[in-house]
Write a protein that binds this DNA or RNA. Structure first.
Lengths: 206, 206
DNA sequence: TATAAAATCGACCGATGGTCGAAAAGGAGA
DNA sequence: TCTCCTTTTCGACCATCGGTCGATTTTATA
């Protein structure tokens, strides 16, 4: 049961890369097994279906991103930067993705949606904790913290996902964030410059 | 060119219903042509591809919904109700959809996304007009109106799409809407009861 | 009625996700 | 080492799907 688990992880890694570069829909099982050098039967010995494999790949991704996010949360950055950092850590699109996947964005809808859903579940508690910290420090003042950060996350995802966002979008987003969390007007303005560049910049560790 | 257009409309209607009930991905071209009683070649005489047909189906849907939304806009409802009504009119999920599609929600991601995108483009101008009206009446007070209603729309879509939204979600949403548009605190509270029941209720005209 | 154009047909295709029975590979005990 | 059982691997095969294409019928036109 040790040998098998190794192989499974290996397959997940391969699929992970291919899904990011080519997209889920555009990566066939045949391509995966060719890359891995195994037979069809072996693949289906480890995974019930292609979609179930996607689920596991996503779990892998989220796990990594959550780790980064937790580091941000326990860092000594100021609260606003923590929130921004956590949101950046969970950015579904990373280096590799941006180029290729920007085009495939549409036909990759299934993966995209699943990631978004899973990401939400993982990110909300961490963001909520950061926001509570802001409340304690008197920087924020709001109730219903989880619901509020949820809205923040929704808007952040949906608005900055595509590249077509304007300065006005950013300005309104910041205004909304301030009011949503009960922060002082203008206290988040300094973020403005950062938002276009929030791409995850953690170096490749492979 | 008259006869052909009739057939095309007929095919669009059939596909429209099937996409709503069974979902786009789960409806095969073979099923559509069987339902329509035509051959494969005929289908591809009218549509370049299945996806292109989806595009036309969506255009059809949005067109109908936009008509309803425009009626709401030119009605004598108060501004807040207009905004709510417009958002309701563009609800991607309608009667038929709710039951079946709630389950298929996930695997129907492609259609769902395309609808969302198209809907956004159609709804924002109408919502903006309503919001401007609110500004003129002194009920709202905000700049960047299109960007603000865009956020409203994003959140509305994403939050109330699934059935898993709580009272807290609604409360925070209303709070956000007020602050986003610069409305008086509590002035939108009376909506609370309506939001769960915003399902499009226009009678079947078939 | 002759002829071109519009519309319909269905056999066929390549690719895809998935199945299945059989055969290696790998111990564990005798 | 031989036996027996489990784990793992193999690849031929399958059904379905979106899409193509040349042939044929229907319709309009002159």
């Amino acid at each position: 049961m040790k040998k098998g688990e190794k192989r499974k992880q290996e397959l997940l890694k391969i699929a992970y890369k291919m899904f990011l570069t080519k997209g889920y829909e555009n990566t066939s099982v045949d391509e995966i097994i060719e890359e891995a050098g195994i037979a069809k039967g072996t693949y289906y010995y480890y995974f019930e279906s292609k979609e179930q494999m996607l689920e596991e790949v996503i779990e892998m991704m989220i796990g990594q991103e959550a780790e980064v996010a937790r580091q941000v949360l326990s860092s000594n950055l100021d609260v606003v930067q923590k929130i921004l950092g956590i949101m950046a850590a969970f950015r579904p699109t990373q280096e590799e993705t941006t180029i290729e996947n920007a085009l495939h964005q549409q036909e990759n809808a299934l993966m995209h949606n699943k990631v978004k859903k899973r990401l939400m579940a993982a990110a909300i508690p961490l963001l909520a904790e950061a926001a509570e910290e802001g409340n304690r420090q008197g920087i924020f003042c709001c109730d219903h913290v989880p619901e509020r950060v949820k809205l923040l996350l929704i808007v952040g995802n949906e608005l900055f996902d595509e590249e077509n966002f304007t300065e006005s979008d950013v300005a309104v987003f910041i205004d909304m964030a301030e009011k949503l969390l009960g922060a002082k007007a203008g206290s988040m303005d300094y973020i403005k410059g950062l938002i276009g560049q929030t791409r995850c910049k953690n170096g490749e560790k492979e």
